[in-house]
């Protein structure tokens, strides 16, 4: 017998006494905050990310201000915004990405309770590598993209797409459980919440 058949047979034999439960488990409700966007901003900031709220009109200036002076900035093809120093991603190699200073993307949604942004890597967010290799990530979230809690996010996301959930800058607590921001992912995360 193949390993596959052996394992499946062993599983069935082991569960001879078990009764399968056909219906999915209903998730407990998430939080329902009074001020959705306010909570989102507060929770993102808790991770020592930089959070700013601005209008659509102010967005280009805020993005420019968020970037290091003279930075070379990778952007996805569908960002819908002109960024100073931008390099539109056309399949840059890892080494080429490593030579750039920052990245600007949009997001699929934001989760208020956990201060999380989720990327589904659509055209305004780009493939996964571009928001990972550069050291500064500026992420634009619109207010109507912010949901209350994780269960609300699950219902809106498409699992057939690759997803990246980001809660603050890269961090570690591996040395004496002392939290340090900034390891392999972007060491600076700036979230711009647009009205």
């Amino acid at each position: 017998m193949s390993a596959r058949d052996d394992i499946l047979a062993a599983v069935r034999a082991a569960l001879a006494d078990a009764t399968p439960e056909p219906s999915p488990v209903v998730s407990p409700v998430g939080v329902v905050p009074n001020d959705l966007v306010g909570l989102f901003a507060e929770r993102v900031a808790d991770y020592r990310a930089v959070v700013e709220r601005c209008s659509v009109a102010d967005l280009p200036a805020r993005v420019a201000a968020a970037l290091p002076p003279g930075a070379r900035v990778v952007v996805p093809s569908g960002l819908g915004l002109d960024v100073p120093g931008q390099v539109v991603d056309t399949g840059l190699s890892s080494a080429e990405l490593d030579a750039l200073d920052a990245v600007v993307t949009r997001a699929a949604l934001g989760i208020a309770e956990t201060g999380t942004i989720v990327l589904d890597h659509g055209p305004d967010q780009g493939r996964r590598a571009i928001s990972l290799v550069p050291d500064v990530h500026v992420c634009i979230v619109t207010e109507d993209q912010v949901v209350a809690d994780v269960p609300d996010a699950m219902g809106r996301l498409d699992p057939s797409r690759a997803l990246t959930w980001i809660s603050g800058p890269s961090a570690t607590s591996d040395i004496e459980l002392d939290r340090v921001e900034g390891v392999h992912g972007p060491r600076t995360l700036q979230v711009l919440v647009v009205r």
Binding site: R43, D46, Y47, G91, I111, E113, T114, G115, T116, H121, R127, R128, A129, P159, S160, R161, A162, L163, T164, W165, I166, S167, G168, P169, S170, A171, S173, G185
Partner: peptide, 20 residues
């Protein structure tokens, strides 16, 4: 880790064309 959410969660389903 005692956090509301960990910094990164990645989900993927097989091969994502043109990405990864």
């Amino acid at each position: 880790t005692g956090e509301r959410m960990n910094p990164y969660t990645s989900t993927w389903s097989g091969v994502t064309p043109g990405d990864g």
